[in-house]
């Protein structure tokens, strides 16, 4: 049974949301979903870009009350 983990990278500049997500993805199992919370508008673009480059799956990407909620799935 895969699980969804929340990666809370709100209000941080270093190492930043995508770097946090990469760290979590390395430790995750195939099939795991992660929800990245980010207040950095850049995340809405660079996270999907990276996910596409490495071949994982972007499940959803939406801004709710100034926080980006980006859900990704590790597929390999």
């Amino acid at each position: 049974m895969s699980e969804t983990k929340v990666v809370d990278a709100r209000n941080t500049f270093c190492p930043g949301p995508l770097m946090e997500l990469i760290s979590f993805m390395k430790r995750a199992d195939v099939g795991d979903q992660m929800e990245l919370l980010s207040t950095d508008d850049g995340s809405a673009n660079d996270v999907p870009q990276w996910i596409a480059k490495v071949g994982h799956e972007l499940v959803s990407n939406e801004k709710i009350d100034d926080v980006w909620h980006i859900v990704v799935k590790k597929v390999k």
């Binding site: 270093c14 930043g16 995508l18 990469i22 673009n45 990276w50």
Partner: peptide, 10 residues
């Protein structure tokens, strides 16, 4: 560098 720019701090 691992992300979209050459350092994580813009």
């Amino acid at each position: 560098y691992p992300i979209a720019r050459i350092h994580n701090i813009e």
